[in-house]
Design a protein around this nucleic acid. Sequence first.
DNA 1: ATACAAGCTACAGCCACTGTAGCTTCAAGA
DNA 2: TCTTGAAGCTACAGTGGCTGTAGCTTGTAT
Lengths: 136, 136
Amino acid sequence: MPEAQPKAYSIGDLARATGTRVNTIRFYEQRGLLPEPPRSSGGQRRYDRTHLDRLAFIRHGRALGFSLDAIAELLALSDDPDAPCAEVDSIARNHLVAVERRITQLQALHGELTRMVRACAGGSIGDCRIIEALSD
Amino acid sequence: MPEAQPKAYSIGDLARATGTRVNTIRFYEQRGLLPEPPRSSGGQRRYDRTHLDRLAFIRHGRALGFSLDAIAELLALSDDPDAPCAEVDSIARNHLVAVERRITQLQALHGELTRMVRACAGGSIGDCRIIEALSD
DNA sequence: ATACAAGCTACAGCCACTGTAGCTTCAAGA
DNA sequence: TCTTGAAGCTACAGTGGCTGTAGCTTGTAT
């Protein structure tokens, strides 16, 4: 009796399942985020469930704005369930702070832009407040 | 009687005056945002006041988050003081909308990350909510 | 005259992909 | 079994907005 084979996925299957482009999956492999999968006799990548989960993890991390380096660290940490999660926590907190800083900065920009756009009376460029503000 | 020469600036002077790196100034020139300035007999760039103003315009635009393409358009428009400023207005409004979208998106991320970080009880990775959330 | 700061060109690298060219392989229908 | 067209393959160039470097040459203060 042959062993039950776990279901194999093509690169396109993984792409569809995770909303990732095929090229991006290969890019993650090249960057070491995804392990090199086995190949079919014709040389095509054949993935299993573990690859799918790992890719999903990467995509969730990206959706939250983590860098690929941070995700690589998180993946490495997640492979050691007995280690303390302090480092995971620290990566997440650092990212949270970076996001906060970015929001603050963008809100300042937003204020500036709003003021500029409101000041524009719709005349000609010669007295456009927007151009004026940029020329300062 | 010789004509009064306008004051000439080296690339380093422009850099200091606008908080721009020397390499970045050359990059703007290469991208067509700054005109090629005259050169000294030895081949070094010699700028005048108009270059300085133009570079300051570019830097203000960048500080407000405009793309170099948008800045190029704004510069072109600002050279024609009689044209209506509708297009300037439209570029600024579009950018404003983009900034708003980005802020909204980052605030969503911020919420997610805050929830994740708060859920982390500081144990081991095996029961870390952060890793769990990413694995989903 | 000399020393050294500042400038020059040209190019590689960053981040996280995206898109393309020019092939080969796979899978489903006839 | 054959054919066809979708899907996969490698390799590389391009995006945006710079930054950094190597290996020179020029400018300027003493």
